[in-house]
Design a protein around this nucleic acid. Structure first.
Length: 231
DNA sequence: GCGACAG
DNA sequence: ATCTTGTCGC
């Protein structure tokens, strides 16, 4: 079906040193202002591994918004060609994600990614990188911190505190649910932090992670088992 | 030099 | 990320 258009094409088989250089170049294209259509569908992306880490498996889901009903999903597998290096996650995971995205009948209005967006050493986490490559609005939702510090977040659902790095607010620690650790939200591409926070909360029901991430995670780590609860 | 370090 | 059962607490 491929409704996917790759707007920025570049090689992925780089060594860590060149990857860092490319990030410094691509970061200039990150848009932190709102430039998104009416959101009628939200997507979720996640990547899992098999074969002792030799094969990457990407799962992309599309949920209706704001009802959050599963509309469609796609899974893709590809050999792993880049090592896990903090700060260079996108070079390891985006290639397979692109393959999964091409299988969708229709792309979502907004994509929530597993990992950081702007809250990155060079301000180009996987969410931002993917957003630039596909020219799609994206948001970064990470379970743990990569960079930045923040004040304690009140244990009240929906509250957040700015994530500051190098004297700049790069994201937010958001309490999606009382009693659990906060998640780290940052702008990916074509969206502001404030708007990103609104959409993340709109995708959260009774768990710590947004439904998009939960669906994608299940499909990426237990494909057949998760697919069962789809029909 | 030392510690930190998304998934 | 991944290997894995029970267990503590609301």
């Amino acid at each position: 079906m491929s409704t996917l258009q790759v707007h920025v094409r570049h090689r992925w088989d780089l060594d860590p040193r060149d990857a860092v250089r490319l990030q410094a170049h691509l970061r200039q294209r990150v848009e932190t202002r709102d430039r998104l259509p009416e959101v009628t569908a939200v997507g979720g992306v996640d990547v899992g591994f098999e074969d002792e880490g030799r094969t990457a498996r990407a799962a992309v889901v599309v949920l209706s918004f704001p009802s959050l009903t599963l509309m469609e999903y796609a899974i893709a597998r590809a050999p792993v060609t880049f090592p896990y290096v903090p700060g260079l996650l996108s070079f390891r995971e985006i290639p397979v994600v692109l393959e999964a995205l091409q299988k969708l009948r229709a792309l979502p209005s907004l994509l929530l990614c597993d990992g950081q967006g702007y809250a990155h050493p060079r301000r180009l986490g996987i969410a931002s990188h993917l957003g630039i490559v596909c020219d799609l609005p994206t948001v970064g939702v990470a379970k743990t911190l990569l960079v930045g510090r923040h004040e304690p977040v009140p244990d009240i659902r929906g509250t957040w505190r700015p994530l500051v790095d190098g004297g700049e607010t790069v994201g937010a620690a958001l309490r999606t649910r009382a009693g659990v650790k906060p998640v780290y939200v940052s702008a990916g591409h074509r969206i502001s932090l404030e708007t990103a926070l609104r959409y993340v909360m709109a995708c959260v029901t009774r768990y710590r992670l947004p439904e998009t991430t939960r669906w994608a995670h299940r499909l990426a780590s237990h494909p057949e088992k998760a697919a069962a609860g789809t029909e």
